[in-house]
């Protein structure tokens, strides 16, 4: 049984110099959507990759560059490192062309994690938008691995179209479970291709079954989506300290030294990416912070 280790301890254990990428080999590639791929990596030297749900790695493509990508695998299977990458920039576009056997460099894991241990005993509501499901998947794995430790578990997922949904097979599996409420919605669909909900993800919140006084909310998606999700959760009676969000900014070093990811007084790479909402609410949603 894996124990959730605090980020600090792991980060230092991986490499003595956190700026040096360690080679990892692509084991498997799965196409999720037209521009998003999930990769399974194994370390070249056979070492394991322990991490906490919500943490991220810096992925380096030889000579091309490096990008922060959250880890999306099962924290209790540290022998495989899983990343879901959307091709949106120079480096991610190149990453998405990786084939099994190719090598990339990995630095990490970095950053804070979803409070899956602290939330034991609570209901859990997970709200994901778009590729925001990827950083939440390790938390979902953890919660399902330890299902008995939580109350009701709700997963609300919004995507652009049915074709833009990640992890379709797993979503179907989770939907099939009796101990998880899974609601999926898309922004647009044709009746012949989609039998599910159409509407923004926030419309799922009033219908979700959880106890607002004893629930922890984990939210990840575009900032606007998170903003409206928080409003809906507040309408359900959640306090700000029951809500956790994951933030994204430009990152270069991932160890709090390069200054790029500053978000008010926070460094997203080391104080985040996961924040308890009450700790950032003064700046959240402020323009160009």
């Amino acid at each position: 049984m894996a124990v959730t280790v605090k980020p600090q301890q792991i980060a230092l254990a991986v490499s003595t110099d956190p700026m040096l990428p360690v080679p990892y080999r692509v084991l498997r590639v799965r196409r999720e959507t037209s521009d998003t791929f999930t990769f399974e990596f194994g370390s070249v030297d056979g070492s394991r990759f322990p991490f906490a749900p919500g943490q991220f790695n810096m992925l380096y493509l030889f000579g091309v560059g490096e990008v922060p990508i959250s880890i999306s695998g099962d924290p209790e299977r540290p022998e495989i490192l899983v990343h879901t990458v959307r091709a949106v920039g120079t480096v991610t576009k190149s990453l998405c062309k990786l084939k099994p056997g190719d090598i990339i460099g990995v630095r990490g894991p970095f950053g804070s994690s979803w409070p899956v241990v602290e939330a034991a005993g609570d209901d859990i509501v997970i709200v994901a938008g778009g590729v925001g499901l990827a950083p939440l998947r390790p938390a979902i794995y953890h919660i399902l691995n330890h299902r008995g430790e939580y109350g009701r578990v709700v997963l609300l997922y919004g995507a652009r179209t049915p074709g833009d949904m990640l992890y379709k097979k797993e979503l179907a599996e989770w939907r099939g479970r009796f101990d998880v409420q899974v609601e999926v919605t898309v922004d647009a669909a044709k009746p012949d291709e989609w039998r599910g909900n159409v509407g923004v993800v926030t419309t799922l919140i009033p219908r979700a079954h959880f106890d607002p006084h004893h629930v922890t909310a984990l939210v990840c998606g575009p900032e606007i989506m998170m903003r409206f999700t928080i409003l809906e959760l507040q309408k359900r009676g959640l306090r700000d300290d029951q809500i956790y969000i994951s933030m994204e900014r430009n990152m270069k070093c991932a160890i709090g030294l390069c200054g790029h990811c500053q978000y008010g007084p926070n460094f997203i790479c080391k104080d985040g990416p996961v924040f308890r909402f009450d700790t950032v609410k003064e700046i959240f949603g402020k323009r160009e912070i």
């Binding site: 560059g65 490096e66 270069k252 070093c253 030294l257 390069c258 200054g259 790029h260």
Partner: peptide
């Protein structure tokens, strides 16, 4: 103290 990195 801000820096960037270049990969070449």
């Amino acid at each position: 103290f801000c820096t960037t990195v270049e990969d070449v």
